[in-house]
Nucleic acid binder design. Sequence first.
RNA 1: GGCGCGUUAUCCAAGAGGCUAGGAGCCGGUCUGCAAAACCGUUAACGUCGGUUCGAAUCCGACACGCGCCUCCA
Length: 493
Amino acid sequence: MALRIYNTLTGEKETFVPLIPGKVGMYVCGVTVYDYCHIGHARAGVAFDIVFRYLKYAGFDVTYVRNYTDIDDKIINRANLEGTDYRTIADRYIQAFDEDMERLGLAKPTVEPKATDHIDGIIAIIEALVAKGHAYASDGDVYYAVETFPGYLKLSGRNLEEMQAGARVEVGDKKQHPMDFALWKGSKPGEPWWQSPWGNGRPGWHIECSAMSMDFLGKTFDIHGGGKDLVFPHHENEIAQSEAAHGCQFVRYWLHNGFVNINAEKMSKSLGNFFTIREVLKKYDPETLRFFILSAHYRSPIDFSDQNLDEAQTGLERIYSCLAALDEILHSQSPPSEFAVLENLTQVGLELQEKVDQFIPRFVEAMDDDFNATQALGILFETVRTTNRFLAETKEMTSVSLALIAHVRHLFVETGTVLGLFTTPPAIWLAGIKSAKADRIDIPADEIERLIVERTEARAAKNFKRGDEIRDLLLAKGIVLLDSAQGTTWKVK
RNA sequence: GGCGCGUUAUCCAAGAGGCUAGGAGCCGGUCUGCAAAACCGUUAACGUCGGUUCGAAUCCGACACGCGCCUCCA
């Protein structure tokens, strides 16, 4: 089965065939760096991180470009507000973005260009557009004449008349057609500027992506991604600019991730219902956030709520607990003897063996179907269940059993590399979750330990009444006691 | 107003003409002095109304409800 990708341009899943066999050129719209990133940015980041990782896993040589928009009205506004220059703002939030994305475990793109490093390329494209009659200078600005490009709006599937009917488009005096958009903006006093044939100014928003993608990936490339909200106008305008300037197809596969919702409404700056990544990471582990994002297919909307995050954490704990159990056995048992007799596996063992054999084919099948990581997680959970059963029912670890669970362990490492999960040793991850939960309770750990000792003594004396009192007392404070042959441990409920 | 998307059990969520998705939860059971964890079992679904078909949650049509884009947005 070949990789199939949903292409916004055609509205269908298509078999992925790269321009150059074995290679993939991929561009994803990054962020405008004027503030901290919210969960919506996290989702887009993770969605295309998975695309990037899986393409590499599938054997492609991927060039992944993700830009920083470091010149824009919003950045200038923020700079004015703070009485500083645009560069200070841009650099600050580039750094913040990098920190956030690193915490979320995003693989570094091949290149992360900045718009302001590509002013020459931007000007070159605008010149070409002007020369071909697709753009016109107007009082220091340069606009793209949308009516000169027959394919305009082919990505979003609309037409100009309909757009204008209910449109809230400002009809600037400088524009020939209300839908025309700025390629170059003349600078007002005090604003940053670059020299151009049309006077001092700065690039419009859409043109930078055309320039940067072409510089690194060529005039035609394979994959372009971004949030659904970029389909119009941003990506539509990129197509118009690039295809009119170069006379060839711009992008072959357009991918768009769905929104993050709050109470079924889109999370956005203007609605004010957003959470920044840093806020959320104060309460939840980064891998939990990633796991949550992967719990819905990348094109579907996903509802952000504490309940859903908690559920994601519970699910991830289930997997990590299984991995921790495997590690404990694998680390404590001596390696299988070379002269081990080939013994037969039990019924559960055979079942697990079958799960193991099917694991990668099923994983690949899920990911090949438009990067369906959510379905892939289902496969991991099924394997966890069978593994747990195997561990529970296997009294003696034979060399064959050990080899089998070592294989299981390896499969989680292998797929974890694609999903960006299980990067932490399970015991450490679980301990981290435990201590994070412990921070939320109002009883000190040494007090808990003291009560456990008291309870152990009581139990040893068969004073179960006192023992249960202590259990109930701690339970009321959210502490659950776990008795085992090795002694009593505790965890936060 | 135009265009597009969605509606799956208690909740989250995949799937997509006949094949156990998965997770969380509930309820029973094994284990335990009692619990917990783990395991086992169980539960339950495709918005409404029509149509196509041997067979529809899946395809087609209408309707209802929700959401998104049409202004900057991931």
